[in-house]
Design a binder for these strands. Structure first.
Lengths: 187, 187
DNA sequence: ACCTGAACACCGTTCAAGT
DNA sequence: ACCTGAACACCGTTCAAGT
Protein backbone atom coordinates (compact mmCIF):
# COMPACT_ATOMS: atom_id res chain seq x y z
CA UNK A 1 0.00 0.00 0.00
CA UNK A 2 1.17 3.47 -0.85
CA UNK A 3 0.52 4.70 2.64
CA UNK A 4 2.59 7.34 4.36
CA UNK A 5 4.87 6.14 7.06
CA UNK A 6 3.67 8.81 9.46
CA UNK A 7 -0.08 8.10 9.66
CA UNK A 8 -3.09 6.87 7.67
CA UNK A 9 -3.50 9.56 5.00
CA UNK A 10 -0.90 10.30 2.31
CA UNK A 11 0.71 13.70 1.80
CA UNK A 12 -1.35 16.18 -0.21
CA UNK A 13 -0.49 19.45 -1.93
CA UNK A 14 -3.24 21.06 0.11
CA UNK A 15 -1.60 19.99 3.33
CA UNK A 16 1.85 21.02 2.16
CA UNK A 17 0.87 24.50 1.09
CA UNK A 18 -1.26 25.32 4.11
CA UNK A 19 1.46 24.17 6.48
CA UNK A 20 4.03 26.15 4.53
CA UNK A 21 1.79 29.21 4.65
CA UNK A 22 1.54 28.85 8.41
CA UNK A 23 5.34 28.72 8.72
CA UNK A 24 5.74 31.82 6.54
CA UNK A 25 3.04 33.74 8.42
CA UNK A 26 4.63 33.10 11.78
CA UNK A 27 8.31 33.29 10.96
CA UNK A 28 8.69 35.13 7.65
CA UNK A 29 9.76 33.70 4.31
CA UNK A 30 13.22 32.97 5.67
CA UNK A 31 11.67 30.65 8.24
CA UNK A 32 10.49 28.33 5.49
CA UNK A 33 12.88 25.57 4.60
CA UNK A 34 12.05 22.37 2.81
CA UNK A 35 13.59 20.41 5.65
CA UNK A 36 11.70 22.21 8.41
CA UNK A 37 8.47 21.94 6.46
CA UNK A 38 9.04 18.21 6.06
CA UNK A 39 9.72 17.87 9.78
CA UNK A 40 6.50 19.77 10.52
CA UNK A 41 4.63 17.32 8.30
CA UNK A 42 6.47 14.39 9.84
CA UNK A 43 7.78 13.25 6.50
CA UNK A 44 11.05 12.82 4.67
CA UNK A 45 12.29 16.09 3.12
CA UNK A 46 12.46 14.48 -0.28
CA UNK A 47 8.82 13.46 -0.26
CA UNK A 48 7.88 17.09 -0.83
CA UNK A 49 9.51 17.04 -4.24
CA UNK A 50 6.94 14.58 -5.37
CA UNK A 51 4.21 17.19 -5.00
CA UNK A 52 6.11 20.37 -5.74
CA UNK A 53 8.79 21.13 -8.30
CA UNK A 54 11.05 23.12 -5.97
CA UNK A 55 11.02 25.73 -3.24
CA UNK A 56 10.30 28.64 -5.58
CA UNK A 57 7.29 26.84 -7.02
CA UNK A 58 6.10 26.12 -3.49
CA UNK A 59 6.22 29.80 -2.57
CA UNK A 60 4.33 30.58 -5.76
CA UNK A 61 1.63 28.15 -4.67
CA UNK A 62 1.52 29.68 -1.21
CA UNK A 63 1.00 33.09 -2.76
CA UNK A 64 -2.01 32.01 -4.78
CA UNK A 65 -3.42 30.08 -1.83
CA UNK A 66 -3.21 33.22 0.26
CA UNK A 67 -4.49 35.42 -2.55
CA UNK A 68 -7.66 33.36 -2.72
CA UNK A 69 -8.26 34.07 0.94
CA UNK A 70 -8.42 37.80 0.24
CA UNK A 71 -12.02 38.92 0.21
CA UNK A 72 -12.52 41.98 -1.96
CA UNK A 73 -15.42 44.38 -1.43
CA UNK A 74 -18.32 44.00 -3.90
CA UNK A 75 -19.70 46.88 -5.94
CA UNK A 76 -22.22 48.22 -3.44
CA UNK A 77 -22.94 51.40 -5.34
CA UNK A 78 -21.26 53.59 -2.72
CA UNK A 79 -19.42 56.77 -3.81
CA UNK A 80 -15.96 56.00 -5.15
CA UNK A 81 -13.98 57.48 -2.23
CA UNK A 82 -15.74 55.05 0.08
CA UNK A 83 -15.00 52.19 -2.27
CA UNK A 84 -11.34 53.18 -2.38
CA UNK A 85 -11.32 53.03 1.38
CA UNK A 86 -13.06 49.65 1.44
CA UNK A 87 -10.55 48.21 -1.04
CA UNK A 88 -7.59 49.55 0.90
CA UNK A 89 -9.08 48.04 4.06
CA UNK A 90 -9.28 44.68 2.34
CA UNK A 91 -5.58 44.89 1.41
CA UNK A 92 -4.83 45.95 4.95
CA UNK A 93 -6.70 43.16 6.69
CA UNK A 94 -5.10 40.55 4.46
CA UNK A 95 -1.63 41.99 5.01
CA UNK A 96 -1.99 41.81 8.77
CA UNK A 97 -2.68 38.09 8.49
CA UNK A 98 0.04 37.35 5.94
CA UNK A 99 2.67 40.08 6.38
CA UNK A 100 5.65 38.20 4.97
CA UNK A 101 3.81 37.32 1.78
CA UNK A 102 3.29 40.94 0.77
CA UNK A 103 6.97 41.72 1.14
CA UNK A 104 7.73 38.71 -1.00
CA UNK A 105 5.16 39.80 -3.56
CA UNK A 106 6.71 43.21 -4.04
CA UNK A 107 9.95 41.50 -5.01
CA UNK A 108 8.25 39.00 -7.32
CA UNK A 109 6.13 40.80 -9.91
CA UNK A 110 5.11 37.60 -11.70
CA UNK A 111 2.57 36.90 -8.94
CA UNK A 112 0.39 39.87 -9.77
CA UNK A 113 1.20 40.36 -13.44
CA UNK A 114 -2.10 38.96 -14.73
CA UNK A 115 -4.44 41.93 -15.19
CA UNK A 116 -7.47 39.62 -15.12
CA UNK A 117 -7.02 39.00 -11.41
CA UNK A 118 -10.01 40.14 -9.36
CA UNK A 119 -7.80 42.58 -7.55
CA UNK A 120 -7.03 44.49 -10.74
CA UNK A 121 -10.58 44.26 -12.00
CA UNK A 122 -11.86 45.71 -8.74
CA UNK A 123 -9.32 48.51 -8.86
CA UNK A 124 -10.20 49.27 -12.49
CA UNK A 125 -13.89 49.44 -11.65
CA UNK A 126 -13.34 51.90 -8.82
CA UNK A 127 -10.98 54.07 -10.87
CA UNK A 128 -13.52 54.26 -13.68
CA UNK A 129 -16.06 55.36 -11.10
CA UNK A 130 -13.59 58.05 -10.00
CA UNK A 131 -13.49 59.37 -13.53
CA UNK A 132 -10.09 58.05 -14.63
CA UNK A 133 -10.21 57.91 -18.45
CA UNK A 134 -9.82 54.48 -20.05
CA UNK A 135 -6.30 54.99 -21.51
CA UNK A 136 -5.04 56.06 -18.09
CA UNK A 137 -6.49 53.07 -16.23
CA UNK A 138 -3.42 50.88 -16.50
CA UNK A 139 -1.00 53.57 -15.39
CA UNK A 140 -3.11 54.91 -12.56
CA UNK A 141 -3.83 51.46 -11.17
CA UNK A 142 -0.15 50.54 -11.37
CA UNK A 143 0.90 53.60 -9.40
CA UNK A 144 -1.87 53.25 -6.84
CA UNK A 145 -1.18 49.58 -6.32
CA UNK A 146 2.49 50.33 -5.74
CA UNK A 147 1.61 53.06 -3.25
CA UNK A 148 -0.72 50.82 -1.29
CA UNK A 149 1.76 47.95 -1.32
CA UNK A 150 4.44 50.28 0.03
CA UNK A 151 2.19 51.56 2.76
CA UNK A 152 0.93 48.16 3.83
CA UNK A 153 4.38 46.64 3.96
CA UNK A 154 5.78 49.65 5.81
CA UNK A 155 3.07 49.15 8.39
CA UNK A 156 3.35 45.40 8.83
CA UNK A 157 7.15 45.53 8.84
CA UNK A 158 7.26 48.07 11.64
CA UNK A 159 8.17 51.31 9.90
CA UNK A 160 5.15 53.01 11.40
CA UNK A 161 4.05 53.45 15.03
CA UNK A 162 2.10 50.38 16.02
CA UNK A 163 -0.45 51.53 18.59
CA UNK A 164 -3.97 51.04 17.21
CA UNK A 165 -4.89 54.72 17.31
CA UNK A 166 -1.85 55.77 15.29
CA UNK A 167 -2.43 52.93 12.83
CA UNK A 168 -5.93 54.27 12.21
CA UNK A 169 -4.64 57.82 11.77
CA UNK A 170 -1.92 56.75 9.34
CA UNK A 171 -4.40 54.75 7.34
CA UNK A 172 -6.69 57.75 7.23
CA UNK A 173 -3.90 60.04 6.03
CA UNK A 174 -3.02 57.55 3.31
CA UNK A 175 -6.59 57.31 2.10
CA UNK A 176 -7.06 61.07 2.09
CA UNK A 177 -3.84 61.53 0.12
CA UNK A 178 -5.06 59.03 -2.45
CA UNK A 179 -8.62 60.28 -2.79
CA UNK A 180 -7.54 63.92 -3.03
CA UNK A 181 -4.85 62.90 -5.47
CA UNK A 182 -7.33 61.04 -7.66
CA UNK A 183 -9.80 63.88 -7.52
CA UNK A 184 -7.08 66.33 -8.54
CA UNK A 185 -5.94 64.03 -11.32
CA UNK A 186 -9.33 63.80 -12.97
CA UNK A 187 -10.80 67.14 -12.04
CA UNK B 1 54.60 40.85 9.22
CA UNK B 2 50.82 40.98 9.42
CA UNK B 3 50.46 41.21 5.68
CA UNK B 4 47.64 39.64 3.74
CA UNK B 5 48.52 36.52 1.84
CA UNK B 6 46.83 37.79 -1.30
CA UNK B 7 48.79 41.00 -2.00
CA UNK B 8 50.53 43.97 -0.35
CA UNK B 9 47.73 45.75 1.44
CA UNK B 10 45.68 44.23 4.28
CA UNK B 11 41.93 43.82 4.15
CA UNK B 12 39.95 46.93 5.05
CA UNK B 13 36.32 47.52 6.01
CA UNK B 14 36.11 50.01 3.17
CA UNK B 15 37.16 47.38 0.68
CA UNK B 16 34.84 44.76 2.16
CA UNK B 17 31.75 46.94 2.10
CA UNK B 18 32.25 48.36 -1.37
CA UNK B 19 32.85 44.92 -2.84
CA UNK B 20 29.80 43.59 -1.01
CA UNK B 21 27.74 46.49 -2.32
CA UNK B 22 28.84 45.68 -5.84
CA UNK B 23 27.76 42.05 -5.40
CA UNK B 24 24.37 43.11 -4.05
CA UNK B 25 23.82 45.66 -6.83
CA UNK B 26 24.52 43.17 -9.56
CA UNK B 27 22.97 40.01 -8.14
CA UNK B 28 20.52 41.04 -5.41
CA UNK B 29 20.86 40.49 -1.68
CA UNK B 30 20.61 36.74 -2.14
CA UNK B 31 23.77 36.86 -4.28
CA UNK B 32 25.79 38.00 -1.29
CA UNK B 33 27.38 35.22 0.70
CA UNK B 34 30.30 35.56 3.07
CA UNK B 35 32.09 32.86 1.15
CA UNK B 36 31.57 34.38 -2.29
CA UNK B 37 32.55 37.79 -0.97
CA UNK B 38 35.74 36.33 0.48
CA UNK B 39 36.52 34.66 -2.83
CA UNK B 40 35.97 37.96 -4.60
CA UNK B 41 38.46 39.57 -2.22
CA UNK B 42 40.84 36.63 -2.59
CA UNK B 43 40.83 35.97 1.12
CA UNK B 44 39.79 33.27 3.55
CA UNK B 45 36.06 33.49 4.42
CA UNK B 46 36.88 33.73 8.09
CA UNK B 47 39.06 36.81 7.65
CA UNK B 48 35.90 38.84 7.09
CA UNK B 49 34.77 38.18 10.64
CA UNK B 50 37.71 40.14 11.89
CA UNK B 51 36.27 43.31 10.37
CA UNK B 52 32.56 42.65 10.59
CA UNK B 53 30.49 41.01 13.30
CA UNK B 54 28.35 38.91 11.01
CA UNK B 55 26.42 38.98 7.75
CA UNK B 56 23.56 41.06 9.10
CA UNK B 57 25.96 43.70 10.37
CA UNK B 58 27.65 43.72 6.98
CA UNK B 59 24.38 44.40 5.21
CA UNK B 60 23.71 47.19 7.67
CA UNK B 61 27.05 48.72 6.76
CA UNK B 62 26.31 48.38 3.06
CA UNK B 63 23.04 50.21 3.59
CA UNK B 64 24.66 53.21 5.21
CA UNK B 65 27.47 53.23 2.64
CA UNK B 66 24.88 53.39 -0.10
CA UNK B 67 22.75 55.91 1.77
CA UNK B 68 25.68 58.31 1.85
CA UNK B 69 25.89 58.11 -1.90
CA UNK B 70 22.37 59.50 -2.24
CA UNK B 71 22.51 63.17 -3.18
CA UNK B 72 19.44 65.03 -2.00
CA UNK B 73 18.29 68.25 -3.67
CA UNK B 74 19.14 71.46 -1.76
CA UNK B 75 16.56 74.07 -0.83
CA UNK B 76 16.62 76.13 -4.02
CA UNK B 77 13.56 78.18 -3.17
CA UNK B 78 11.48 76.55 -5.89
CA UNK B 79 7.73 76.05 -5.35
CA UNK B 80 7.02 72.96 -3.24
CA UNK B 81 5.55 70.79 -6.01
CA UNK B 82 8.80 71.15 -7.90
CA UNK B 83 10.78 70.27 -4.82
CA UNK B 84 8.61 67.20 -4.28
CA UNK B 85 9.45 66.18 -7.81
CA UNK B 86 13.17 66.81 -7.30
CA UNK B 87 13.21 64.72 -4.11
CA UNK B 88 11.35 61.88 -5.76
CA UNK B 89 13.81 62.01 -8.65
CA UNK B 90 16.69 61.69 -6.18
CA UNK B 91 15.07 58.58 -4.67
CA UNK B 92 14.51 57.27 -8.14
CA UNK B 93 18.05 57.76 -9.43
CA UNK B 94 19.50 56.12 -6.34
CA UNK B 95 17.12 53.19 -6.59
CA UNK B 96 18.11 52.51 -10.18
CA UNK B 97 21.72 52.15 -9.06
CA UNK B 98 21.02 50.09 -5.97
CA UNK B 99 17.71 48.32 -6.59
CA UNK B 100 18.20 45.41 -4.23
CA UNK B 101 19.03 47.67 -1.31
CA UNK B 102 15.66 49.42 -1.38
CA UNK B 103 13.79 46.15 -1.25
CA UNK B 104 15.92 45.15 1.69
CA UNK B 105 15.30 48.48 3.36
CA UNK B 106 11.54 48.13 3.24
CA UNK B 107 11.87 44.91 5.20
CA UNK B 108 14.31 46.36 7.72
CA UNK B 109 12.86 49.49 9.32
CA UNK B 110 15.86 50.01 11.64
CA UNK B 111 17.85 51.43 8.74
CA UNK B 112 15.64 54.50 8.35
CA UNK B 113 14.26 54.86 11.86
CA UNK B 114 16.41 57.83 12.83
CA UNK B 115 14.37 60.96 12.07
CA UNK B 116 17.51 63.09 12.04
CA UNK B 117 18.63 61.54 8.77
CA UNK B 118 18.95 64.09 5.95
CA UNK B 119 16.31 62.27 4.03
CA UNK B 120 13.68 62.91 6.71
CA UNK B 121 14.82 66.46 7.30
CA UNK B 122 14.53 67.21 3.59
CA UNK B 123 11.07 65.69 3.46
CA UNK B 124 9.97 67.65 6.54
CA UNK B 125 11.22 70.89 5.01
CA UNK B 126 9.28 70.35 1.80
CA UNK B 127 6.12 69.30 3.61
CA UNK B 128 6.25 72.44 5.77
CA UNK B 129 6.55 74.41 2.57
CA UNK B 130 3.48 72.61 1.27
CA UNK B 131 1.56 73.79 4.31
CA UNK B 132 1.42 70.57 6.32
CA UNK B 133 0.88 71.60 9.96
CA UNK B 134 3.63 70.69 12.44
CA UNK B 135 1.70 67.98 14.34
CA UNK B 136 0.95 66.22 11.05
CA UNK B 137 4.54 66.23 9.78
CA UNK B 138 5.49 62.86 11.16
CA UNK B 139 2.41 61.09 9.89
CA UNK B 140 2.39 62.70 6.46
CA UNK B 141 6.09 62.04 5.90
CA UNK B 142 5.67 58.42 7.01
CA UNK B 143 2.86 57.81 4.56
CA UNK B 144 4.57 59.61 1.70
CA UNK B 145 7.85 57.82 2.28
CA UNK B 146 6.05 54.48 2.22
CA UNK B 147 4.25 55.42 -1.01
CA UNK B 148 7.48 56.44 -2.72
CA UNK B 149 9.29 53.34 -1.49
CA UNK B 150 6.50 51.19 -2.86
CA UNK B 151 6.56 52.92 -6.22
CA UNK B 152 10.33 52.84 -6.59
CA UNK B 153 10.61 49.20 -5.66
CA UNK B 154 7.73 48.29 -7.93
CA UNK B 155 9.54 49.99 -10.76
CA UNK B 156 13.01 48.56 -10.15
CA UNK B 157 11.62 45.09 -9.50
CA UNK B 158 9.76 44.98 -12.78
CA UNK B 159 6.13 45.50 -11.80
CA UNK B 160 5.85 48.37 -14.23
CA UNK B 161 6.49 48.60 -17.99
CA UNK B 162 10.15 49.28 -18.49
CA UNK B 163 10.40 51.29 -21.70
CA UNK B 164 11.77 54.77 -20.95
CA UNK B 165 8.70 56.61 -22.12
CA UNK B 166 6.35 54.61 -19.95
CA UNK B 167 8.71 55.00 -16.98
CA UNK B 168 8.52 58.76 -17.36
CA UNK B 169 4.74 58.68 -17.63
CA UNK B 170 4.37 56.48 -14.55
CA UNK B 171 6.67 58.73 -12.59
CA UNK B 172 4.63 61.71 -13.69
CA UNK B 173 1.36 60.09 -12.62
CA UNK B 174 2.86 59.27 -9.23
CA UNK B 175 4.06 62.83 -8.68
CA UNK B 176 0.74 64.30 -9.74
CA UNK B 177 -1.13 61.97 -7.40
CA UNK B 178 1.11 63.06 -4.54
CA UNK B 179 1.07 66.78 -5.19
CA UNK B 180 -2.69 66.89 -5.71
CA UNK B 181 -3.09 64.74 -2.65
CA UNK B 182 -0.96 67.06 -0.54
CA UNK B 183 -2.73 70.11 -1.87
CA UNK B 184 -6.09 68.57 -1.03
CA UNK B 185 -4.86 67.55 2.42
CA UNK B 186 -3.85 71.05 3.43
CA UNK B 187 -6.29 73.09 1.37
C1' DA C 1 46.65 42.47 15.23
C1' DC C 2 45.40 39.96 11.56
C1' DC C 3 44.73 35.80 9.14
C1' DT C 4 43.71 30.76 8.53
C1' DG C 5 41.85 25.48 8.39
C1' DA C 6 39.04 22.33 10.29
C1' DA C 7 34.71 21.60 12.03
C1' DC C 8 29.58 22.10 13.07
C1' DA C 9 25.00 22.70 12.01
C1' DC C 10 22.38 24.01 8.66
C1' DC C 11 20.51 24.64 3.50
C1' DG C 12 18.20 22.93 -1.61
C1' DT C 13 18.27 19.33 -4.67
C1' DT C 14 19.57 14.88 -7.50
C1' DC C 15 19.56 10.18 -7.97
C1' DA C 16 19.02 5.43 -7.32
C1' DA C 17 16.52 2.39 -4.63
C1' DG C 18 12.63 0.71 -2.07
C1' DT C 19 7.14 -0.57 -1.54
C1' DA D 1 2.43 6.14 -7.53
C1' DC D 2 4.53 7.50 -3.61
C1' DC D 3 8.13 7.56 -0.37
C1' DT D 4 13.01 7.23 1.31
C1' DG D 5 18.49 7.51 2.46
C1' DA D 6 22.68 8.71 0.94
C1' DA D 7 25.15 12.08 -1.31
C1' DC D 8 26.59 16.69 -3.37
C1' DA D 9 27.37 21.39 -3.36
C1' DC D 10 26.41 25.02 -1.01
C1' DC D 11 25.50 28.23 3.43
C1' DG D 12 26.94 31.17 8.27
C1' DT D 13 29.67 30.86 12.12
C1' DT D 14 32.85 29.13 16.17
C1' DC D 15 37.11 27.91 17.78
C1' DA D 16 41.82 26.89 18.28
C1' DA D 17 45.95 27.65 16.06
C1' DG D 18 49.25 30.12 13.30
C1' DT D 19 52.41 34.69 12.08
Amino acid sequence: MAVSARRGSPLSLEEISSTALRLVDTGGVEALSMRKLAAELDVNPMSLYHHVKNKDALIGIICSTAAQRMTLPPDDGAPWPEQVRALALAYHRHAVEHPALWSYLLNHPESTADRNLVIWQTLYRILRLAGVPEPELRRTSDVLHAFVLGFIIAETQGHLPSDPEEIARNFDTAIRLITHGLAGLTG
